[in-house]
Design a protein around this nucleic acid. Structure first.
Lengths: 101, 101
DNA sequence: TTGACAGGCAACCTTTTAGTTGCCTATGGT
DNA sequence: ACCATAGGCAACTAAAAGGTTGCCTGTCAA
């Protein structure tokens, strides 16, 4: 899932869906004009595999929806650990930097 | 920075530093016995480039410290956007899934 | 019912990333 | 002074990610 976020293009796609949910493939392609449709498809596939977007086929359109659940899960489960130890880590850092070298 | 987090080994390194800050390279190597020392060095280099760890040379030891600032910055700046729109995105998602297909 | 539109699939190429090996440098203990 | 310890650098290989092209399928609208 971090891997899915580790690409600027994919983050752009997520942002776009955050702004307007349920966009089609071609709509999202306009967002990344430097890529071909298939390129965008691949990125969306990764996001789907990471369960960050969910798709619905409607007629000949494929609509893409943001799935906000896992990104929040990660944020809470993983990042809050760092939040918790932030001050301790910071002071250790400062101490180390100020010691005699 | 997401790229730096997009690797299990590097996350393990960060976790280790969260548990005990200021470890040397060789100490961290024990954490990833499947890699050689140079392999670990490279990972630490990436973490350092992403400004997630800071190093201090002390004698012949190189101490690694967690830098908790950027990880929190990201969490707040980026992830909180998704938190903000969570409910809206969720309901759009549900609506889409329940529509006639 | 035919053609244009939206999208899928597979093969291929290129670039990045991950990892190793071999050798070199500096520091500290005895 | 010497050797073991801690680490750095560079070249190389292997694997994965990113992207393209070409062609195929399904759906809607005239």
């Amino acid at each position: 899932m971090f891997k899915a976020l580790a690409d600027e293009g994919r983050r752009r796609l997520l942002d776009a869906l955050r702004e307007r949910n349920g966009q089609t493939l071609l709509e999202l392609c306009e967002l990344l004009p430097e890529l071909t449709r298939q390129g965008v498809t691949k990125h969306l596939r990764l996001l789907e595999d990471a369960n960050l977007v969910v798709t619905v086929k409607r007629g000949r359109h494929k609509l893409h929806y943001l799935n906000p659940v896992p990104i929040n899960e990660i944020a809470e489960r993983w990042l809050s650990n760092y939040e918790r130890d932030k001050l301790r880590a910071l002071s250790a850092l400062k101490a180390a930097l100020q010691e005699d070298r």
